[in-house]
Design a protein around this nucleic acid. Sequence first.
RNA 1: GCGAGAGUGGCGGAAUUGGCAGACGCGCUGGAUUUAGGAUCCAGUGCCCCCGGGCGUAGGGGUUCGAGUCCCCUCUCUCGCACCA
Length: 839
Amino acid sequence: CFGTAGNSGRLGGMSETAGYPRDEETYDPLEAQDRWLPVWDKLELYRAGGADDPRPRKYVLDMFPYPSGDLHMGHAEAWAIGDVGARYANLQGFNVLHPIGWDSFGLPAENAAIKRGLDAVAWTNENIDVQAEGFRRYGISFDWRTRLHTSDPDYYRWTQWLFLRFFERGLAYRKNSPVNWCPNDQTVLANEQVVGGKCERCGAVVTKRNLTQWYFRITEYADRLLDDMTALEGKWPDRVLTMQRNWIGRSTGAHVSFVIDGRDEPVTVYTTRPDTLYGATFFVVAADSALAAELAAGGDAEADFAAYLEQVKKATDIERLATDRPKTGVFLGRHAINPVNGERIPIYAADYVLADYGTGAIMAVPAHDQRDLDFARAFSLPVVTVIDTGDDDPAVTGIATAGDGVLVNSGPYDGLRKAEAIERITADLAERGGGSPAVNYRLRDWLLSRQRYWGCPIPIVHCAQCGEVAVPDDQLPVRLPDAAAVDLRPKGTSPLASNPEWLNVACPKCGAPATRDADTMDTFVDSSWYFLRYCSPDYIDGPFDVEAVRRWMPVAQYTGGVEHAILHLLYSRFFTKVLHDMGMVDFVEPFSSLVNQGQVINQGKAMSKSLGNGVELQKELAAHGVDAIRVTILFAGPPEDDIDWADLSPTGSGKWLARLWRLSGEIGSADAASGDDDEALHRLTHQTIEEVTRLIDAVRYNVVIARLMSLSNAVRTTVDTRGAGTPAARHALESLAVMLSVFAPYTAEELWSRLGHQPSVHLQSWPSFDPAIAAAESVTCVVQVNGKVRDRLEVPPGISADEAQQLALASDAVRKALGVMTVRQVISRPPRLVNIVAG
RNA sequence: GCGAGAGUGGCGGAAUUGGCAGACGCGCUGGAUUUAGGAUCCAGUGCCCCCGGGCGUAGGGGUUCGAGUCCCCUCUCUCGCACCA
């Protein structure tokens, strides 16, 4: 029956041919991949249109990869998700920009160079080539002309150019400050790169060092970073917005000045609770602040303080993070004057107050702040309740009362409620010059210097006469010297400083001997603007062509991991706002919508070498083919959920694709339209197109695939019962081929070809549906008695409430269920439901 | 501790505005066909049952003709922050 299988029977479930494949061929997905890939390359299917392209534009972006080696499961998931959006936009007739590039500066290349003597440039470029070929075979619809590498001088020249613009605007500056230090990687880290006291990259326990480093003044944009998020509501995942809000951490309160005995200048503290000022019974300065050292100097407590400070410095962040850590501190032998009641209160140095938040000094109100209370109890300090919250006395219970209440022991403010007191006391202090309303942020400036080799050099020259001098634009890029020409071994200072030829230059301003800044930039600087470069990757007159960016940006769909919620996504928003202020872009938010894909795990745990639960992507691809893996990943669940490979069945996905493939052979080789058509299948096809379109827009890809499976099951039934020549079967499968092409590009091309069409299915239009055909002829109306389903009636979709009620009451099943009860009320919600209330 | 989110079959997960719970798939059971099956196809598959039906969306309460969906309480889990004054 070879070749005629489609017409050879199978009129019922158990025909004489049942059990045999309908076709002696079997689907070989790997062979199909090899066959189509060159065809697609030749067709150049995914070139973004130029300025004169009349189609509406859509920028679909995936967070660009780091060239760590070959692609792994994580890549397979992220890019499968992003590719659906890009391919769907293409079929819908958009002019799509779907670019690819590499975030190619970073530690692994340097470590490979140190440990194995490899050249960082060669190592990087080889890995990129491997990944690029991996993506090509994985069938991602990139416009390959966009390909960029952040480690290319053509790219980092503009990273340096942008740095200089920030420098000119005072947004890049150097300061000496305690910084996070990774003893393993031998470099400083930004706050955002310290996770739970450990280095985000290598897991080493982070320590503190005092260093002079470059910073971006991101705090200046804190309000805008916060406030502009309202425009992202509903378009970015809530959890990302929440994380950014918490990270920026805006709080409002007041600055209050305290006169210090024996000091000319008063000291200002920040508090969110000026209403509790009468309850301030002591004063605390951060142990590692300059103020603490100054207050201790020359006094009786100097030695005690020095010993305490030594102890504090030794403590790692991990120790500091322990929640039940007892409060420690030392009395400095000095006193502050409470501005509202003139009381002299003792000043302590303690490490529970942070030097770099607020002013590094606090007024301590033990009755209404748990930390202050813990300290007061440890040091036997008085606890004065100034807000009656109705709770038990904190001095007795050891539990501070932070809630609302009425002021007591607060002189003229007694009787006020919390909110009112905050307002009044702040206003009164402001009037007397003792304070002012204040806003604070937990966000810190972005530390961008790194003491590593494989990064973008900072284009600054240090001159004894002129200070920090910008390298002139026409001398950019400041190129990295060859790795062979520097000492790469981690030693806590930048490797670039080990090459005197590179380091020593004439000052661009005065010509005197000077030295280059030998640090490199955090790689997050590189990735804060790459999405702009993609719009004009070969542009030579600036970082990007302003017109091209105006055409494509902002990004319509951005896909990437949630791990960048407060790193890359915050930094990119900051860069965009600065560029907006520079007049280079006309929008303030770079990414209009964000999809955070989950992770691929195995057996309940993240894949890791030590657990031995890694799943090798290349093996899976070789065993099942690209399409089966893409479908498996996308069908597993909502894109944002983690998926456990152990729960999945690539074999099952492969079977579905093979079923479709066999159907395409049967229908493709069937005699043209014969016999009755199948109205029900036509209807289902139109309904499926309608629903799938809506679901793709909602990024519900797992449900989309379920609907496509349902439709393919229905096509199978029609082919079995009416023959493969049924027009509805062909229409359904052709529609399926196009819809499938966004998930399983190779199989879809096979279907298209076997149905007798020329390549490529990827050049087709997204199928349209006719609402009139999609409309159901009849719908099932559920009839309930007291909420329980008693009958189901087939009714016209346009049935009236009265008609539905009449039909329901006439039902035998309903009469039986009613028995002797009398009908009290009928709720008729045509055409879906009638509920009869009886008793 | 604070903040956010989530609890649905053996499993992954479906379920417009509150309106047939469990779509689709995996797994499992039985069958057809086969030298063979890790292929293909058909049927079944939430739980209980006295075969009339009853019970079911973490647990308890509430609103409603009607709740997986809305409200309150409890429990559990995940994620984020973690002395931020």
